[in-house]
Every structure is written in C-alpha cells, then in structure tokens.
C-alpha cells in the first residue's frame, strides 16, 4: 500500500510528455521496473541528478494506476564518470541495453543487479583503456547470457552433447552460433561450416570461468589479447543470432572501440 522504496540502477530514461521522463530501474529485490519522474525536465526539479542513466539510487515510489511514480530520489553512487568519457559511455550503454532486453519486468534478478553494479564500479575505478573495455564487455555478456538462460554451450558439443576437452594438449575448438555453442568434429561435418569461429582451448577455459565469475573474480583474470579477440567474435555472433534485434548501441560501441 502507498509508497514503497527501491534501491536500483537506472538502466535508461526516456522523455515522456512535456516535462516527464520514464525511468527503467533495475532493483535489487524486485527486478526491472518502470517509474515516471514527473516534472523532471523542469530546471528546478530536485529529481534531476538522481535520475540519470547508470546511477545507483534509492527511490521512494508511489503506486499509480498504470505506472508508478517517483516521489523522492537519493543518489548512492552517481557513476558520473561513465557519462563523462566516450568509451565508458559506449560500454555502459551497451550493458544497460542488453540487460533491458534480456531481463523481464518485475522478475527478481539479484545476480544481474550485482553483475551490473560490479562492472560499473570496475569501469569507474580502472584506467579507461580498450583492454579494460573488452574485458568488462566479455564478462558482462557471458554473465548476462548465463543468468538469462541464453548461455552458449561451452562444456559439451551443442548438438550431440559429447564433452569438449579444453586441456593444454587439445586442438582448437569450433564455435557455432546457430548450433548454440561449441560443436564437435563429427557434428561439424554434418552442419554448415560457414559461420564457424575457431577458439584456442585457453579461450574456452576463460569463457567458462567468466560465465560464473563475479566482477571481482573476472577482473583478477589475466585475459590475453588473443583470448579477448576470439571470445569477442564468438559472443558477438551468438548474441546477434539469439537476440530478436541488433542492439542499437552496437554501432556507437564499434565506432568508439575503433572497429
């Protein structure tokens, strides 16, 4: 009844009507939800700073008939740096867009909350570099895919289920977005081999690790340029194949990453 409190990350903010904005908030307990910030585009609105994308805030919400509204907001961490640097902005935009796409409304996902918050902290505290950007992006993609059930098959062949070895003496493994992950030598022959991406065993091991790692654990992993590159190609094709539409932020991200 009446008001309730949420602590969440602002995923996005879109203009609504003359002076309002609708925020998509990822709350730790409730999951993804939408709320309207009335009058926020007026210069005197006290909600303005708190309702910026990527900021972590405590919101006091009132219940509306169709949409709940924000009566008070207080910034916990503003993550201002993510909006003040083109590279960080591009990475953070991609993160919130994919999270918004993959998470269902009012479906609690504390893991997604912790993942995004941890990655934002990582982005803010690290020296901005292309290496960090790729490391964070891969950690996010693997983490989000894992917790939303779209994870590629990395332990076994996606087609026949035969375990795939990624030991030091193993050869390169093949990844197929249409098959849904790794694909073994015999299944490869039956399938169309045009979209195959070859991965070194070390790349597959790093992917397995990052799928289940916390941002802190992921950060401690040393990711070789080769592994980052191979993983990036495999995940890009996997995401484009399994998501309904191409992420809007992808072109901007590629521009900033210099691809």
């Amino acid at each position: 009844m009446g008001n309730y409190k949420v602590e969440g990350i602002v995923l996005r903010a879109r203009d609504f009507g003359e002076a309002d904005r609708v925020l998509t908030i990822l709350d730790r307990r409730l999951g993804k939800l939408e709320a309207v910030a009335k009058g926020i585009r007026r210069p005197r609105s006290s909600l303005r700073g708190a309702c910026q994308p990527f900021s972590q805030c405590v919101f006091l919400l009132w219940r509306g008939r169709t949409l709940d509204g924000i009566s008070q907001a207080e910034v916990v961490r503003s993550h201002a740096r993510l909006r003040d640097d083109l590279l960080l902005l591009a990475v953070a935009s991609y993160i919130v867009e994919l999270a918004d796409e993959a998470l269902r409304e009012r479906d609690p996902s504390p893991e997604a909350y912790e993942l995004i918050l941890g990655l934002f902290d990582w982005l803010e505290t690290a020296e901005p570099s292309l290496e960090t950007a790729h490391h964070v992006l891969r950690t996010f993609e693997l983490g989000l895919l894992e917790l939303s059930g779209f994870s590629p098959s990395l332990e076994a062949c996606a087609t026949c289920g035969r375990p795939e070895e990624a030991g030091p003496q193993a050869g390169r493994l093949a990844f197929s977005a249409s098959a849904g992950g790794l694909i073994c030598a015999s299944c490869r022959q039956a399938a169309d081999s045009s979209g195959l991406i070859l991965l070194a065993p070390g790349t597959v091991k790093a992917m397995r690790f990052l799928s289940r790692a916390s941002p802190q654990q992921a950060r401690a992993l040393r990711l070789t340029p080769q592994a980052a590159k191979e993983m990036g190609a495999a995940l890009r094709s996997h995401i484009l194949y399994h998501f309904d539409r191409r992420p809007k932020s992808l072109d901007f991200l590629d521009t900033v990453l210099g691809r």
Binding site: P43, R44, S46, R48, G49, A50, Q52, V75, S78, A80
Partner: peptide, 13 residues
Amino acid sequence: PVGGDLEYADEVT
C-alpha cells in the same frame, strides 16, 4: 540554475 536552491541541487550538479 538561477532561482534554484542549493539544498535541492543534486550531487552531480
């Protein structure tokens, strides 16, 4: 903003 109140200005501003 002119006519604004420091107390209500957000941290970023």
